[in-house]
Amino acid sequence: MSDIADFLTALDAAQKKEKYTSEVQDAAGGIDAATLKAAVEAAAAMGEIETVADEAQAAALSAGFQFAAKVVLMLTAAPGPYEKKDLYVYFKVARNETVEKPAFYDMVKKQLYGEWEKVKHYSDQKAQALYIQNVNTLIGKYGTRDS
């Protein structure tokens, strides 16, 4: 699942200022698509706790994650609950954030916490790559609006 063609198309449109809000366009600035693609492929191939050794790739991956967090808000339809769950847990891990253990009766938060528990040991770069891949899938499924 390391093909991120839809994501790279969105990145290109934002960099050319053909689509999206100025905030999304600003997030796309300075990201080299080839380096980002290589970084996502490298992160997808690495283990759960490994990190990308190449500094340029690491920087591109971080910038790509920031862009993904902005462009996901531009989807034409809201993702379903299972898709949101994946975005949530990878976002939290990518930002090194913890999730509080929920109350006994809060079933939705308990499920999110359980999913986060499964991936909390991933490196932030692995989580960033997985987040970008999920956003790529959502862009392909729902498309994005212009502004």
Rank of each mutant, 00 (worst) to 15 (best):
Y90V: 03
K109P: 01
G140R: 00
V99P: 02
W116I: 09
N96E: 15
V89F: 04
T98G: 09
I139P: 03
W116L: 09
L138E: 02
Q125W: 08
K101Q: 14
Q133D: 01
A94C: 05
L130G: 05
L138V: 03
M107L: 15
N134G: 11
K110E: 10
A129N: 05
M107T: 13
I132R: 00
Y122T: 04
Q125V: 08
D106N: 15
H121V: 13
L138D: 00
F91S: 11
V108Y: 07
I132L: 01
W116C: 14
Q125S: 04
A94P: 05
R95A: 04
G114C: 07
K118H: 08
Q125R: 06
E115R: 06
Y131F: 15
K120S: 14
H121A: 15
L112N: 14
K92D: 06
N134I: 07
G140A: 03
D124L: 11
Q128A: 11
K101S: 09
G140E: 01
A127G: 05
P102T: 10
Q125L: 08
V89M: 04
V89P: 00
K92H: 12
S123E: 13
L130E: 14
Y122C: 09
T98D: 12
A94R: 09
Y122A: 14
V119R: 05
V99I: 07
K101H: 08
V119K: 06
Y105M: 12
A94M: 05
Y122Q: 13
V135H: 02
K101N: 09
F91G: 04
L138N: 00
V119D: 04
A103L: 05
V135N: 00
N134Q: 14
V99R: 02
G140M: 01
Y105T: 11
K120R: 15
K126W: 13
Y122I: 08
I139C: 00
Q128R: 15
M107N: 11
K92C: 05
G140V: 02
V108R: 11
K118E: 14
L112A: 13
H121C: 04
Q125D: 06
L138F: 01
A94H: 10
A127H: 09
V135E: 00
A94K: 07
K120E: 13
A103D: 15
K126Q: 06
V135G: 01
E97P: 02
E115Q: 08
Q133H: 01
T98Q: 11
